[in-house]
């Protein structure tokens, strides 16, 4: 049953992704992106990655929809139409996709406990969380303690992103005295 749910959810993801690619209407794309992250989080729940699902729910469904809409207010409503069809990009994409699919043949089976990734440091983390750190949520233990340095890097990245955004669109221009009011006249 879980396998069946996985497959249906993957199918829904595929449909949504194709629809996002083919729509020229940026607003529709934003809404479908919201639906995409909703489905994604359900899939993560089904794969037992609960922390990831929680992040996807909070960021993907809540914040990124709002931020994409905020970006839409600064741009146009429709994507520019593309002219014609060109072969070279299509070939590059097709070949890359085929190579990636070929690469998955060598991957270990899904959830295989004897795969190399599971045997390297994972048993150590699990035992260490049980014996040394003694908190029930292993993901928190790994993120905050075993890989604390990575998490510090992530916090710095988020902070740097803030600095970038504030430098680009954070300053208020002279005609923005009051946020949320319309600029009085528009001179063509």
């Amino acid at each position: 049953m879980e396998m069946f749910v996985d497959m249906v959810l993957m199918g829904l993801l595929g449909i949504t992704a194709v629809a996002i690619v083919f729509t020229r209407h940026l607003f529709t794309a934003t809404m479908l992106a919201g639906a995409y992250s909703l489905t994604c989080a359900a899939l993560f729940v089904n794969l037992d990655a609960v922390d990831v699902a929680l992040t996807e729910a909070a960021i993907g469904a809540g914040i990124s929809t709002v931020l994409l809409l905020g970006t839409l207010t600064l741009t146009r409503r429709r994507e520019k139409a593309h002219k014609g069809f060109s072969w070279p990009p299509f070939l590059v994409v097709a070949v890359t996709g085929a190579l990636l699919l070929y690469g998955t043949v060598d991957m270990p089976a899904f959830g295989d406990p004897n795969s190399p990734g599971m045997r390297h440091v994972v048993p150590e983390y699990i035992a260490g969380t049980r014996d040394d750190i003694q908190i029930p949520n292993i993901v928190t233990a790994i993120l905050a303690s075993y890989r604390g340095f990575d998490t510090l890097g992530e916090a710095v990245v988020i902070f740097t992103a803030l600095i970038g955004v504030l430098l680009m669109v954070g300053r208020r221009r002279p005609d923005d005295e009051e946020a949320g009011t319309r600029r009085p006249e528009r001179h063509p």
């Binding site: 909703l38 609960v50 729910a57 909070a58 809540g62």
Partner: peptide
């Protein structure tokens, strides 16, 4: 259910 609860809160905002 923690996640379902979060969705119920966040879906509204979108």
């Amino acid at each position: 259910l923690d996640i379902a609860l979060l969705y119920a809160l966040v879906n509204f905002i979108g």
